[in-house]
Amino acid sequence: MTPITEVAGRRLALSNLDKVIHPATGTTKGEMLHYYALTADALLPHLRDRPVSFLRYPDGPGGQLFFTKNPPPGTPSWVRTTPVPRSEDPGARQIVVDDLPSLMWAANLVVEFHTPQWRAGEPAVADRLVLDLDPGPPATAADCCAAALWLRERLAADGLEAWVKTSGSKGLHLMVPITPTGSREVSAYAKALAVEGEAALPRLMLHRMARALRPGKVFVDHSQNAAAKTTAAPYTLRARAEPTVSTPLTWEEVADRRNLSCSLADLAPRLERYGDLFAPLADPGRARPLP
């Protein structure tokens, strides 16, 4: 029998709580839901008022994975949706996770949370810039740290402040709060940074996506600034054998190449020690214009 629980006045059916989702650690769906409940105060500001895309993995990372933007069948009427521009579907809508009941309902589907760089009601007007640093073996996360430190200084030269998190996979994400700017303009600026990074450190950084060029280098993926693209949200679990989390880091950790892979069990003590390191990203007062 599927247990029913009440979350902030909403009744939720939470299913298969004993099912193992992350096999390397034996992490169950119930433990995943407990994680999201514990980290909700940190996670929700980074989901709130943004259309959410889900990478679903209900049978674990070894099962079927599917990316979905449309509200799934059975979405409760109290879960907020917002219209999103899609040429192939003018009436398209997506979920917006604004509160704890919506978060727990979505987490029960077993998902990664992905968001665009713009907010509901302002499509293609970005308030964040993102650079996804992806190492091509034998390059490692430590090489991503070297690239991140160079990019941080370069952004600072333009009056922009960057925050950094693990991707939850192999690399790092740099995120920068900006005053609302068209996604095309943000994309052009991000590409120019990646090109400049490759010119400055050609043995380390690469701005082109071609697989043949990537071994031993850090691909500076600027494409996620496009209006149609999304990025894994801070604190989301990832569909990996172990329950890794996209985890905000301090710049000291990046400089020391420490804590470059964090799991579900690591986040509660990190939040107790640091709070939400990404809180400034949700503060409009920290946004700065692109040069």
Score class of each variant (00 low, 15 high):
15 S>Q: 14
6 E>D: 13
37 A>L: 13
120 A>W: 05
42 A>M: 04
134 D>R: 00
93 R>N: 08
62 G>I: 10
89 D>R: 14
142 A>I: 10
262 C>S: 15
47 L>V: 08
100 L>K: 04
231 T>R: 08
96 V>N: 04
191 K>N: 13
79 V>F: 04
141 A>C: 04
122 E>S: 15
132 D>G: 03
287 A>D: 04
150 W>N: 06
64 Q>H: 15
217 K>H: 11
125 V>T: 15
242 E>A: 15
134 D>S: 01
270 R>D: 04
27 T>W: 07
205 M>S: 04
114 H>M: 06
141 A>H: 09
204 L>D: 03
9 G>N: 03
195 V>K: 14
133 L>A: 07
94 Q>W: 03
55 L>S: 03
106 A>Y: 02
60 G>R: 00
99 D>E: 12
22 H>N: 11
130 V>K: 07
283 D>H: 10
22 H>T: 05
251 W>M: 04
204 L>P: 10
243 P>V: 07
258 R>F: 01
123 P>C: 00
43 L>W: 06
30 G>V: 01
133 L>C: 07
72 P>R: 10
197 G>P: 01
138 P>F: 06
33 L>N: 07
123 P>F: 00
206 L>N: 00
122 E>K: 15
281 L>D: 08
227 A>W: 10
151 L>R: 01
287 A>S: 13
95 I>S: 01
167 S>W: 00
240 R>I: 03
154 R>V: 09
48 R>A: 14
15 S>C: 12
170 K>D: 14
133 L>H: 09
6 E>H: 13
144 C>N: 06
279 A>I: 02
221 D>R: 01
98 D>M: 05
